[in-house]
């Protein structure tokens, strides 16, 4: 149930973890309790997990398992009721709204099932959005957004608006947006849920490429064959971690000689 290696997190040390086993996400006894009228419903009941730099992890679980709540917490969209959440050495469970916004901006790249692009706005501008909120100057914004779009092979579609793009292209714009601020993790919530299987495979291949380039990827899904693309699967059931297994692909990667640092 627990991961084999346990490191003591430290807020004081800049690089608390040795080698390429740096912990990016660490939760400690994470609880989330919702108040439903007079009743209290615990969506998460003490979740402990660690995700390392440049891991490719899938979080799986049936609906109602607490999987979405966990994703919201990992994505800093919400704060836990109890417990600690460390992201890249920051204790984010104690942060206020504005600080969470900054963390979302700098540390997390979201990829949503519904793409969530701004309509009537070009692909380029959509990708620039996180940079606008991080206060990058316009020239740098454009340059970095172009580079991100290049990474997802959309350099020739930068001025298209979402309604002029296919579903797969829209999701690639969203992935470019997730990449553009060089976040600690890319958090993909059912990224293929609205796509046909061919396009899904394209998107999963793209995530694989991003992983190979050194990104940490957390995939939230309820589909087994999508989860199989990851290297490690964390199962959530009844608000707790019910299993943590390495996939076949993960085995293959583990047996591979270590890649040079990204």
């Amino acid at each position: 149930m627990a991961t084999p290696t346990i490191h003591q997190p430290s807020a004081t040390t800049a690089t608390p973890y040795a080698g390429d086993h740096e912990v990016v996400i660490r939760t400690e006894n994470l609880w989330k309790i919702y108040q439903m009228g007079s009743e209290q419903v615990a969506a998460l009941r003490g979740v402990n997990l660690q995700i390392y730099r440049n891991e490719y992890v899938a979080i799986m679980g049936p609906s109602g398992s607490g999987k979405s709540t966990l994703m919201n917490l990992i994505g800093c969209l919400d704060s836990p009721t109890r417990g600690e959440y460390w992201l890249s050495g920051h204790l984010v469970s104690a942060l206020d709204d504005d600080e969470l916004a900054r963390i979302r901006n700098q540390e997390i790249g979201f990829v949503f099932q519904t793409f969530n692009l701004l309509p009537r706005t070009s692909a380029l501008h959509n990708v620039e959005l996180p940079l606008i909120y991080s206060g990058a100057p316009p020239a740098e914004r454009t340059e970095r957004a172009m580079a991100a779009l290049q990474q997802v092979d959309l350099a020739d579609r930068v001025h298209h608006k979402p309604n002029e793009l296919s579903g797969g292209q829209r999701q690639r714009v969203a992935i470019a947006r997730a990449l553009v601020n060089r976040p600690s993790i890319i958090l993909a919530d059912e990224p293929t849920g609205n796509l046909d299987s061919t396009t899904s495979n394209e998107i999963m291949a793209l995530l694989e490429v991003l992983w190979e380039r050194g990104n940490t990827i957390v995939l939230v899904t309820h589909e087994h064959d999508i989860a199989e693309h990851a290297h490690r699967v964390i199962h959530i059931r009844d608000g707790q971690v019910a299993g943590d297994t390495r996939t076949r692909r993960g085995d293959a990667v583990a047996n591979r000689p270590p890649a040079p640092p990204a």
Binding site: A101, N105, F110, N116
Partner: peptide, 16 residues
């Protein structure tokens, strides 16, 4: 609403 959510997810603060 969804636009607001998207903007917040990519780092917009309340004040933004």
């Amino acid at each position: 609403t969804q636009e607001v959510g998207t903007r917040k997810a990519v780092g917009a603060r309340r004040s933004d």
